[in-house]
Each structure stands twice: as structure tokens, then as C-alpha cells.
Design a protein around this nucleic acid. Structure first.
Length: 368
DNA sequence: GAACCGTGGGA
DNA sequence: TTCCCAAGGTT
């Protein structure tokens, strides 16, 4: 059992006072701001979340605004951040707050854990950072810091290690200082005790750090099993008719649930990408499209896949019949202006940007 | 426990 | 280019 003398961390709070980054939600610690920021920061690095936070809170300044917002709007504000259930859950949770909590972010653990998208970490983060409650927390930063500080030699993802990390977090929490203490540990992990190349010479905890003493900080935490990446070759196409573009909305439980997309799918063995996009349009919409031009090839990744997306321009002969959707829950012939307001997966948004940059879709504004 | 859910930046 | 990683949650 590692030594857990809270005095070993006495240099942490002064370090945080000197090095804390000025973040928008650190201005006032309004519970609404802390909640939004914590959801955005799940599996997301802070530098990336700040712009999204400012745009989100500028458009949706409080719980009531989120509860009243349309799903398309919250997804559009979330577009590019990934894990889109977080955005749908924010809206669902805001509605619970309106119904059961007077439009406020609740300040009890049970009420927070009952909200969709809020788990053990996020509940503790809101309680400590927004309300100052004495709640310990462990995120990836804290886990890395503790694995080094106490030289834990099992992967941080293992259940036994996780239990140990939460126990340590509880023992080391200075009463009354949870707000700064928890943020300080995470900030230290983000700025100093980094995954690669930890800056031990700048670390306030270095004198107490066991991995540092053994000179094995770079080998902690012990890596877990790495998951393999599956390459995918996909085909999609932009079907235009009278200046409008056909798009469909993905089902809620699916990948990219609630986002809009161009129909398409996997290129099967023995099939060209152009053949695949024609087949996929028939299967997903009943449209008999023809390829008018190849457009571009987009490469991007998601979760455990690496995608090569072959993109085509498509046309329909005659007036389009009503589509018969098999992979989507809604469809629309969207004007270029309407496309701006819809949320697309990153690969499809890259295609829209490619089209806009070449003015191939008149009326579609090019992004920076 | 394991799989699934996204994305872009840095090394 | 490729690999690793992130202020996790849900099923």
C-alpha cells in the first residue's frame, strides 16, 4: 500500500495558483459553465474545448436555453468534437433539470448521477469545482500523476488499479480545498506530468515522486493493451437536383446519431468505388443515381477505423421520387444555405469544405 | 469486462 | 506516415 501522506502534496496548491490557465469557466465557476465544460472535456483536450465552450454558451447561456434548443442546433454546436451522444445527453439532462431541479444544475451526487451523460467522474467534478464539495475525482491526468507518484505498476485501466486510484484521491483530498486541489492535479497532468516527456524538473511533486526517485517516470503508467485499427474503404456522393443537395439524418443509436450525411457505404471486394456509391444509393434511398464526376478522396479516422472516403458528384434523371430510407430516419433536399445549419460527421464536413473551396456548390460558404 | 462511441493534434 | 492520446459514459 503506497504511502499517502497528504503533506507530500503541500506544494501542489501554490503551484496551481501560479500556473493555472485562464479558462472561461474558471472566471465564475457557475454550475452551468462547469457542467458544460466537463461534458465537453470528456475524452477531449482542453485547448480544443475552449472555442466550443465559448460558442456554446454564447448561443445557449443557461440550462433553460439548452432544454429549449432543437437537437439539430446542439449537434451543430457540437460538430467536430465527436462522441455526439454527449450533446444529445446535454439537451436531455437540461430537460430533466427544468422538470425536477428548478432549471439548475443539481448539487447532490445522486441527482447528478441520474442525469444522462454524467458518470462518477463528471458528478465529482461538478460537485467539487462548481459547488466546492469535498469530492475526490480521478481522470486520465490524475491517474497518470498517481501512477508515477506512487509507482503503481499495473495498467491504470484495470479495475483493481482504478479502485486504488479513487482510494488515493480520497485520502489525499485536503478538506475545503477540493475545487482547487482537483483542478490542480488535472492541470499538473496536462502541463507537467505529461504522457510523454514529463517535465519532472518543473514538478512541485518531484521530491515526493516514487517513479521520479527510481528514474522510471517515463515508464509509468504501464501501458494497457492497444487496440488494432481497421482500414475501411468507403464511397459517398453528393446528389444535386435544381441546386439542392440530398441529405439524410442518421438514427439516434447509430454512429453519428442525429447527424446528417450523404448516403454511402463500404466498397465491396470486386467493386469500384463508383459502383459502390450507385449501389449504396439504391439500397439506402431507392434512388437510381449516376456518377457525373469523381470529386476527391478524403482520409480521416474515427474510433478504431481509418477511413478512405471516395467522393463523387451524382445526378438523377428526371424528377426525384420520394426516397425510401433504410439507413436513416429523415431526409431533405437542402439548399447550400441550409447545409450550414446541419451537423455532419467530420469526413462529410471535409467534403463540404472541399466543394465550397472550389465553388462547386453555389451558395455554400467556404470555411477558414 | 469489453466493446462502442469521434476527432484532431503532437511526437 | 503512423501511432498515441484526451477533464468518460453507456450498454
Amino acid at each position: 500500500m503506497p504511502r499517502t501522506d497528504p503533506a507530500a502534496l503541500s506544494a501542489l496548491l501554490p503551484w496551481f495558483a501560479a500556473h493555472r490557465r485562464p479558462l472561461p469557466w474558471r472566471q465564475d465557476y457557475r454550475p452551468y459553465h462547469v457542467w458544460i465544460s466537463e461534458i465537453m472535456l470528456q475524452q477531449t483536450q482542453m485547448d480544443r474545448a475552449v472555442d466550443y465552450f465559448l460558442r456554446w454558451t454564447g448561443r445557449l447561456p443557461d440550462v433553460a436555453a439548452v432544454a429549449a434548443a432543437r437537437e439539430d442546433e446542439v449537434l451543430r454546436l457540437w460538430e467536430g468534437l465527436g462522441y455526439y451522444s454527449r450533446a444529445r445527453n446535454l439537451r436531455a439532462a437540461a430537460r430533466v433539470m427544468m422538470e425536477r431541479h428548478g432549471g439548475r444544475v443539481p448539487d447532490s451526487r445522486d441527482a447528478l448521477l441520474a442525469l444522462p451523460g454524467v458518470g462518477r467522474y463528471t458528478a465529482a467534478a461538478v460537485l467539487s469545482i462548481a459547488y466546492g464539495h469535498d469530492e475526490p475525482l480521478v481522470d486520465a491526468n490524475v491517474a497518470r500523476v498517481f501512477c508515477r507518484l506512487f509507482d503503481l505498476d499495473a495498467p491504470a485501466g484495470e479495475a483493481a488499479t482504478r479502485r486504488e486510484l479513487w482510494r488515493l484521491a480520497g485520502e489525499l483530498l485536503p478538506p475545503g480545498r477540493a475545487r482547487d486541489h482537483n483542478q490542480a492535479l488535472m492541470e499538473l497532468g496536462a502541463l507537467v506530468c505529461t504522457p510523454r516527456g514529463p517535465r519532472c524538473d518543473a514538478c512541485p511533486l518531484a521530491p515526493a515522486c516514487e517513479a521520479r526517485r527510481l528514474d522510471i517516470a517515463a515508464h509509468r503508467p504501464v501501458p494497457g493493451r492497444k487496440k488494432d485499427i481497421t482500414p475501411l474503404t468507403l464511397a459517398t456522393g453528393v446528389l444535386t437536383h435544381r441546386g439542392r443537395v440530398f441529405v439524410q439524418k442518421r438514427a439516434p443509436g447509430d454512429v453519428w446519431g442525429g447527424l446528417w450525411e450523404f448516403p454511402g457505404g463500404g466498397v465491396e471486394p470486386g467493386e469500384t468505388p463508383a459502383q459502390a456509391v450507385v449501389r449504396e444509393y439504391m439500397e439506402e434511398t431507392g434512388f437510381c443515381v449516376r456518377v457525373t464526376a469523381p470529386l476527391t478522396v478524403i482520409r480521416h479516422g474515427y474510433t478504431r477505423f481509418r477511413v478512405t472516403l471516395n467522393c463523387f458528384a451524382l445526378a438523377l434523371d428526371g424528377e426525384p421520387p420520394p426516397p425510401v430510407l433504410t439507413e436513416a430516419v429523415q431526409w431533405r433536399w437542402a439548399s447550400p444555405g441550409e447545409l450550414e445549419g446541419l451537423a455532419f460527421p467530420a469526413g462529410h464536413r471535409k467534403l463540404l469544405d472541399w466543394l465550397a473551396a472550389r465553388e462547386l456548390l453555389p451558395g455554400l460558404a467556404a470555411r477558414a
